[in-house]
């Protein structure tokens, strides 16, 4: 029978740095592979619409005539399917999360 089993761990951790960090004073570090949000280099884009067809949530809208590419960040599930399918490799997955917004669209 053991009493106060956790006491040892608690005492040890007292002298150590906190496991949490002070967000947002200390910025969160993203890894290289983190899927954050989708970005487009519009100079290379040929507006083929493959990404629109591939998108499982229909978050991307491409208009070939008007040369327009839009994404609804709130619908996007960051699966990176569009990035994989892009023939010109002009879509890329940024490793930071999309920033907060004050209105829906």
């Amino acid at each position: 029978m053991a009493f106060l089993k956790l006491a040892g761990t608690v005492t040890k951790r007292m002298g150590m740095k906190s496991a949490c960090y002070m967000y947002p004073v200390v910025a969160r570090e993203f890894t290289k592979t983190t899927r954050g949000h989708v970005e487009l280099d519009s100079a290379d884009c040929i507006y083929c619409g493959l990404c629109q067809r591939k998108c499982p949530t229909k978050a991307i809208e491409v208009n070939r005539q008007e040369k327009n590419w839009t994404i609804q960040p709130l619908r996007c599930i960051v699966c990176s399917g569009c990035v994989d399918v892009c023939p010109k490799k002009c879509l890329r997955m940024e490793n930071t999360y999309s920033s907060s917004v004050t209105s829906k669209f």
């Binding site: 496991a19 592979t33 983190t34 960051v78």
Partner: peptide, 21 residues
């Protein structure tokens, strides 16, 4: 606290923390 370290490893390898994708 320990689970958090595993989640960090998952993010480093798969790209997502909870939804591996």
């Amino acid at each position: 606290r320990l689970r958090e370290k595993i989640l960090d490893m998952v993010e480093d390898t798969a790209g997502g923390r909870v939804i591996f994708g």
